[in-house]
Amino acid sequence: MACECGNKKESLDKYLAPLREVLKNYEKEEKYLIPILQEAQDEYGYLPEEVLKEIASYLDLSLSQVYGVVTFYTQFHLEPRGKNIIRVCMGTACHVRGGADVLAAVKDALGIENGETTKDLKFTLETVACIGACGLAPVIMINDDTHGRLTPEKIPGILASYK
């Protein structure tokens, strides 16, 4: 079999090109690790291993150090995620106004559990502690849009508008 190393390297380079664009804007300092991870995740949707390795070598940190930071913060993900991120608020205000029923309705509508992604990669479901729109409780956030004053009946209609 012919050696494919060259080939692989080429496709890896291509894969990492957007990341390298991001890295150009940052100096090689540890304090930029989190902003770089945030931008990389915006770019790739999640943080694949190759991306973490590249970031580690750019910042001259060990991979385990980068991995430690990634797993500490709930914002970072090591698995592919859906196109639309649904965050159901489980905060106090939402809790006393029926947030749990809203979560159940979302689970029902998508057939996934908290933390999972639909097979078609359209939706990822997460819960958060408070979105800061407690006046409109119960609240969910889809991408950057906040939807408030929800009842379980409103969920299918809202989800439909994101398909």
């Binding site: 690790l33 945030q38 914002q75």
Partner: peptide
């Protein structure tokens, strides 16, 4: 501006500073 990355404990001042430095927010 420094954007948080989703960890409640980072509101605690020493954890917050660790986070700004690019570390785990402990």
């Amino acid at each position: 501006i420094k954007k948080g990355a989703g960890a409640f404990v980072c509101g605690e001042e020493t954890a917050l500073m660790a986070s700004i430095e690019g570390k785990r927010g402990m």
